[in-house]
């Protein structure tokens, strides 16, 4: 039994409100159906019906976890999420499988790389993108008690060697370079690529480039303080995400700096369009989001900005993008 299954079953045994619904996507939760009895529902390949039913249950006091492929969950069922979950502000925790780069060989139809953008665009909706299995489990515990809707990027990758801070929506954590006073670079990231960012930071550190890595954890609410702190203390802010460059963390950073009248040098790393499918490690290399590629792109960008004057502390000049 994996930790997700344990969490669902533990929660269900304590909280009779919990119902789990899937759109015929039982991988990662095979032991749940027989143990949850009628509180596990498989609607078949019917994401719209799944979300509508979840909303109907949630407004009657249930807490519903819906579990389906991230691409189909967020896009096939989008209007149901918008109308029936978000408008109702119903406690439905929507867990999306193989989000971002994790769809590896499936191809563009299965790529959820605009999911953060469209989900955070909805009023009432929260967005949680954990970096490893422990963070997923810790966050889910909190979300299941939150009485509001959430979209969650599922991840079950082995735990990163990072210090952990109790999960709190809207609170980012420093996962590398906490003790650096004024790092040359702050990488803001979330989800699967957090590992690549930490490795890239280690590599850059060996060249005397001091890099802090910040794990955003939730993209909505996003930790604005962490973003402003990065902009105020580093020569270069880098966003790294397995998501389109529109609407995700790159946009969140731009929106935040704009709202606070701050400027910064920002390098945005993400997908300009659908990525070429293949084995995961090859995709990372091919899309220039492996740790080596991230380190290389940061080095290049740093080399560019040493030739321009540093941003004055309270500058309102325009945000620059890679």
């Amino acid at each position: 039994m994996n930790r997700y299954e344990t969490l669902l079953l533990d929660t269900a045994s304590r909280d009779e409100r919990l119902v789990v619904i899937t759109a015929e996507n039982r991988g990662h939760m095979r032991t749940v159906p027989p143990m949850l009895g009628d509180r596990f529902i498989d609607v078949g390949i019917a994401e719209q019906t799944m979300i509508g039913m979840a909303a109907g249950m949630a407004v009657r006091g249930r807490v519903v976890v819906t579990h389906a492929l991230a691409a189909f969950l967020t896009m096939r069922a989008f209007e149901f999420i918008r109308d029936d979950v978000a408008i109702a502000n119903a406690p439905v925790i929507m867990v999306g499988m193989v989000p971002g780069v994790l769809s590896d060989g499936n191809g563009p139809t299965h790529q959820a790389i605009e999911d953060v953008s469209i989900m955070r665009g909805l009023p009432n909706m929260g967005v949680f993108c954990p970096c490893d299995e422990s963070e997923f489990i810790d966050g889910m515990r909190v979300l299941l008690e939150s009485r509001r809707p959430w979209y969650v990027r599922y991840i079950n990758t082995p735990d990163l060697a990072i210090s952990r801070v109790a999960f709190e929506p809207g609170v980012a954590t420093v996962v590398r370079g906490e003790s650096l006073h004024r790092p040359n670079v702050t990488i803001l990231t979330y989800g699967f690529l957090t590992r690549q960012c930490i490795e890239a930071a280690e590599e850059l550190g060996r060249d005397d480039v001091q890099v802090r890595v910040v794990n955003m954890r939730t993209l909505k609410p996003a930790d604005e303080k962490a973003i402003l702190h990065a902009a105020g203390t580093s020569e270069l802010v880098v966003t790294v995400e397995d998501h389109l460059l529109t609407g995700g963390l790159a946009s969140i950073v731009a929106e935040t700096l704009m709202a606070h009248g701050k400027g910064a040098h920002v390098l945005t790393i993400g997908f300009p369009t659908w990525f070429t499918p293949g084995r995961l490690d090859e995709v990372l290399a091919n899309e220039h989001i492996s740790s080596a590629a991230i380190a290389h792109r940061i080095r290049q960008r740093l080399a560019d900005i040493v030739h321009v004057p540093a941003a004055p502390p309270s500058s309102t000049h325009e945000v620059t993008h890679a």
Partner: peptide, 23 residues
């Protein structure tokens, strides 16, 4: 009992309510 406007939504919402009651 529930908002609507966009067509084709409340049969599934009603199914969730009916199942909740049955449970």
């Amino acid at each position: 009992e529930f908002h609507s406007g966009s067509l084709g939504h409340l049969l599934s919402v009603g199914m969730g309510m009916a199942l909740d009651a049955r449970m």
